[in-house]
Amino acid sequence: MPYGQEDSYQQNKAQDVGGRYKIIQKIGRGGMGTVYRVYDKLLSRELALKVLSDDQFGKEERLRFQREAATIAKLRHEHIIRLYDCGEYNGYPYFTMDLIEGENLFEMCKKKKRGFPAKYIAEIMAQVADAVHYANEQGIIHRDLKPDNIMIDPTGKPVVMDFGLAKVQHAETKLTCDGTMLGTLIYIAPEYVSGKVKDVDAQNDVYAIGVILYEMLTRYNPFHGRTHTDTMDKILFGKVPKPSKKNPRIPKSLENICLKAMERSKKSRYASAYDLKKDLEAFLRGKKIVYKNSSLPSLSSLSQQFQNPKVVMMALITTIFIIITITLVLLLVYAR
């Protein structure tokens, strides 16, 4: 059954995939595949079934589709889509996964004209950051994080989806040619846009989370350009307005977290999605997050440093030295 063709889909709607999955309706189409709501006759439940589209049926696309299934299969996290089964039907590879009944973050934000409360945004993004950090720890870089790829289920829980462009570290087969940039441009980190494709790592995902956070806070993406080149220029050289310029109600600490996640320099950006998550959680607990300059360390990295006995000892010695110096200077002044 050529799933990618709408007329064929209508003609074969009653047909079972692999004798197990009864197609109910088409629910979406992405860059690589078409997604259907199906009924699993074996386990009596509804699932989502993704199948490779007709126009993506080359050798590389097929390998990438199979890798997506293998990638999701490795991941077990409450905020990452779960894979249940994979196979091939009439020559078309497919896999089944959770059927998320909610809507994606893009659709949800579009409907919410007045925006969301700051704490709700921080809660959602902390959960997304936790999921992304977990994937990064498994050697998987998502590479295409955007509001469209984050579903919000009926309970309000975010679920990260679509690992079709993910970079799998230490993978036996290399699917991306040198110099090829993958992903959605307005969420791609500056170093990636500038051509440092080989340097893609967890901080690229951190940057994308920062841009999504910016959008949720402001309902605006600062990198939209009239042309592809214009967008790249904004990412590499444009001045990003502070979120509070677009929405004065944004708490300063949450703005600081957002700006740090979006730092152009990797050295100044959060080192990991875990660090980003910890600062978001600190904000939710009412802690103040300060952002003075590009070299601002995260709250979590500071706490880790001060758990190191050597760091504590050096800080103590430095403090004592400063106190003694000030005391001596004051004594000399009063002696005169």
Score class of each variant (00 low, 15 high):
125 M>G: 08
117 P>I: 01
65 F>E: 00
115 G>P: 08
133 H>W: 15
62 R>P: 01
110 K>C: 00
106 F>C: 00
42 L>G: 01
108 M>I: 08
86 C>W: 08
44 S>A: 07
42 L>F: 09
107 E>S: 11
69 A>H: 10
64 R>Y: 02
76 R>Q: 15
84 Y>D: 08
134 Y>V: 11
107 E>D: 13
87 G>T: 04
103 E>V: 12
46 E>D: 09
119 K>R: 07
45 R>E: 03
88 E>V: 06
39 Y>A: 01
89 Y>S: 01
81 I>Y: 12
60 E>T: 04
115 G>T: 00
91 G>D: 01
136 N>M: 15
114 R>N: 09
115 G>W: 05
43 L>C: 04
76 R>A: 15
72 I>M: 12
102 G>N: 06
137 E>I: 09
36 Y>D: 02
68 E>W: 06
104 N>K: 10
48 A>K: 12
69 A>S: 11
44 S>D: 14
104 N>I: 02
122 A>P: 10
86 C>G: 06
136 N>A: 13
86 C>V: 06
118 A>G: 09
114 R>A: 05
49 L>K: 12
63 L>E: 01
67 R>K: 07
96 T>W: 05
98 D>R: 13
127 Q>F: 02
39 Y>I: 00
125 M>L: 15
100 I>D: 07
75 L>R: 14
70 A>N: 12
87 G>Y: 10
59 K>P: 05
50 K>W: 14
51 V>L: 06
55 D>G: 04
57 F>A: 06
137 E>H: 15
105 L>A: 03
86 C>Q: 15
135 A>Q: 12
64 R>Q: 11
102 G>L: 05
118 A>H: 11
96 T>G: 11
136 N>K: 14
37 R>T: 02
84 Y>N: 08
103 E>A: 14
40 D>Y: 07
95 F>V: 05
137 E>W: 12
